[in-house]
Design a protein around this nucleic acid. Structure first.
Length: 728
DNA sequence: AGTCATTCCTTTTTT
DNA sequence: AGGAATGACT
């Protein structure tokens, strides 16, 4: 079998590299996923490696699924058994299997970010520390950072008082996690790394099993992940990593692109392969990307090239404010679809911070056009979903106090903070978790417990405990979906959240969506279901074949590509973000972030900034991003500033869905004769009055201009016929 | 115990 | 502007 079909020389070298460590430096769009998957196929198909001796690690479930899909495409059933997953899910699997060596048991739950902060708050409260001075979020960030550096509480550096306090909180935080039989995200990596470090027998078992270890996005690994990989590959040393320092954008999460350099030091016999040819973007887009990234110091310049041709210049658009940015995006998209230049799913709109999505969403909603927003938070962050997850988690693991606290009054059942505090105090006395005491009460056998809880609150607790007991019995024999049904039924949740309003209906719909997700775990069980929920990433919510424009953060955009990309909010203090100003390392990362965004575009790129932007509710004037200065004038098809038209455009009427068009293969080539009109120009028409130019192109010796008129909406005119005046 | 109103605080980025 | 957290009220 040939697994190098259609690959260039460097790609072939990578796919067929011999044994030992291999480092593939892969620029954007250079086909690194392809190399990884073909390599796996090659190992199995041509080298006779057995699938279960291969481990492939990614950062998102989506990437893992895609790789699996592609390997199966190449090999069919032969590919079954490859260990393929994210760092976190692979670690969770190992930790459950090896729980006997660890201070928690196999049905641990994974605490999400909210839980993690709650736990820090609890620790702070125990030490009587002021949350204003010790910000839970900051304290947690410090703890998380330490964990990523493999620092246990004892090793936490304490050069000042504040750090001493942080160390004590960290210590307590870990105790609390264990007493809840819970792990946070960082623990998954930390515990696995120490498990392999401290138990040579366990380490060797895994190291012997995994003859080949392959890693995607290696520049995003932190020290914990790096060590983990080192242990896993400690026997065969067949470690194949793919990465690009220029696309390292997770420094704040402990990622260290220097791991790429460290790799070469740790494995002196590394074979190094560079993939530089880009198969994604036009040369104009690559030129812009290089103009941006070349300003970063301490890097070996890369020459990105393509044979796709020069393509359109990139468009830079200055809007009056962030709202006008959104309007420009909408109208440009509408025009290109109307002109059959693109399909709705071809567009992506990217931004630095999540908060920026709101104006864009409003603009889409206002124009009555569909869109897709990337973000798991959207669904899993909803109250009703968190409620249901908390119930399931509590049933799965009664030690989970945070879920208990969440669930105790959903719906209200006569158990308040006071009662819960009593329960907790009592539980402490008998050295049990509150949930276990509750279960005991529910079984009604341990009369010792019942004496402690008399009266109204005692009845309420006993009743709740009985429910919990019933569910935990059920959990053993029924599927997650059945269990969910029973819980919903018992607590009459439908009546509780659906008050007949639209929002109420939405809430119930969400619960039903959750139920549908649970149905997929019919034979995998509650544990897997909860784990999957805990480890979904925003990227995982991206639909492969979206039929509508996608809104997403620049971070979420990594690894994706779109024919047309808008990057909005290119203003100083947004991108680069103001919190990066005083740290050169962070400024470099902001630059890489823009680089990542630019290199997502295949055909067209729009960079938008505005004169004013709203911050905390009020509007203030803003500076263009300093990064824009690095783009040479000749690369830009500059769009004119819109005049101070603050008015909201009229929208595009009642369009329920994007027109169902086929993108023509006959996309117009770059114009040869002079254009008079450019996107963003304000024009006046004798009958339609004022409007904004969205686009223009040369066709048959005439200039065809698309204009969005404030009064009549979108019109297409020929410049030679319409008597258009350029305003201002 | 639970509901409602007021304050205050926020903005990186996310497994 | 909007959401969470705190605190008064029923």
């Amino acid at each position: 079998m040939d697994f190098t079909n259609g690959l260039n020389l460097q790609q072939q070298q990578a796919v067929m590299a011999g044994l030992g460590p291999v480092l593939v430096l892969a620029g954007p769009g250079s086909g690194k996923t392809r190399v990884l998957t073909q390599r796996i196929a090659y190992l199995i198909g041509s080298m006779g490696v057995r699938p279960y001796q291969i481990l492939a690690v990614t950062f998102t479930n989506k990437a893992a699924r895609e790789m699996e899909h592609r390997v199966v495409d190449l090999l069919g059933d032969m590919a079954r058994g490859v260990s393929l997953g994210t760092f976190h899910s692979i670690c969770a699997r190992i930790l459950r299997r090896e729980a006997e060596h660890l201070p928690f048991n196999a049905n641990f739950v994974i605490f999400d970010s909210d839980d993690q902060v709650s736990l820090v708050k609890r620790a702070l409260a125990e030490f009587n520390l002021d949350e204003k001075i010790y910000r839970p979020l900051n304290v947690h960030a410090a703890i998380s950072h330490a964990k990523n550096e493999l620092l246990l509480p004892e090793a936490f550096p304490t050069t000042n008082y504040r750090e001493e306090i942080t160390q004590r909180i960290y210590q307590r935080y870990q105790e609390l996690l264990l007493s809840n039989n819970a792990l946070d995200f960082d623990d998954l990596l930390l515990w696995t790394a120490y498990l392999l470090e401290d138990n040579p027998a366990v380490r060797d078992r895994y190291a012997h099993r995994y003859e080949h270890v392959l890693v995607d996005e290696f520049q995003d690994t932190n020290l914990a992940q790096y060590n983990l990989l080192k242990h896993l590959a400690s026997f065969y040393h067949n470690i194949f990593v793919v990465g690009d320092t220029d696309q390292s954008i997770y420094r704040w999460r402990g990622a260290d692109y220097r791991n790429l350099l460290r790799f070469e030091e740790d494995y002196p016999d590394t074979q190094k392969i560079m993939l530089e040819q880009n198969y994604r973007s036009t040369q104009s887009i690559l030129d812009a990307a290089m103009a941006i990234i070349d300003r970063n110091p301490y890097r070996t310049p890369k020459q990105l090239f393509t044979d796709r041709g020069q393509g359109n210049k990139i468009t830079v658009f200055e809007a009056y404010d962030d709202r006008a940015e959104a309007d420009f995006v909408i109208t440009t998209i509408a025009t290109q679809i109307a002109r059959n230049q693109a399909l709705p799913g071809d567009f992506a709109i990217m931004y630095r911070t999540n908060a920026q999505s709101r104006l864009l969403e409003e603009a889409f909603l206002h124009a009555n056009l569909p869109y897709k927003l990337v973000g798991a938070q959207r669904f899993y962050g909803r109250r009703e979903i968190k409620d249901m997850i908390a119930y399931l988690r509590l049933v799965h693991n009664p030690n989970d106090e945070l879920s208990l606290a969440r669930v105790k009054s959903v719906p209200p059942r006569g158990i308040g903070d006071k009662t819960l505090l009593n329960l907790r105090t009592f539980a402490q006395q008998v050295d049990k978790a509150p949930g276990e005491v509750l279960l005991g009460l529910g079984q009604g056998k341990q009369s010792a417990y019942q004496e402690a809880f008399s009266g109204r609150s005692g009845t309420a607790l006993t009743k709740f405990g009985a429910l919990l007991y019933k569910w935990s019995q059920l959990a053993g024999e029924r599927s997650p979906a059945d269990l969910l049904d029973q819980i919903l039924d018992d607590i009459e949740y439908h009546a509780y959240i659906d008050d007949g309003t639209d929002e109420g209906n939405d809430r119930w719909e969400n619960v039903m969506e959750m139920r549908r997700l649970a149905m997929e775990y019919q034979d995998k069980g509650l544990s897997d279901f909860l784990e999957q929920i805990a480890l979904v990433s925003d990227q995982d919510t991206i639909e492969a074949d979206a039929k509508v424009p996608t809104l997403l953060t620049l971070h979420a955009a990594k690894g994706l590509e779109f024919p047309v990309v808008f990057i909005v909010g290119l203003n100083d203090s947004v991108l680069p973000h103001s919190r990066s100003f005083d740290d050169p390392e962070e400024m470099m990362e902001e630059r890489r972030l823009l680089y990542v965004g630019i290199t997502r575009a295949k055909d067209r790129l729009y960079l938008l900034y505005s004169q004013n932007r709203s911050m905390y509710g009020y509007s203030e004037s803003a500076e263009p991003s300093r990064f824009l200065n690095d783009l040479p004038e000749e690369m830009i098809d500059s769009a004119q500033p819109t005049r101070s038209s603050r008015r909201r455009s009229a929208g595009l009427g009642r369009v329920e869905r994007w027109p169902d068009t086929q993108a023509g293969s006959e996309r117009s080539a770059a114009p040869i004769i002079e254009r008079r009109f450019h996107p963003g120009m304000r024009v006046n028409h004798p009958t339609w009055n004022e409007g904004m130019v969205l686009n223009s192109r040369i066709q048959d010796d005439d200039e065809i201009v698309d204009i969005f008129f404030e009064e009549v909406g979108l019109k297409r005119v020929a410049a030679s016929l319409a008597r258009l005046d350029i305003l201002q």
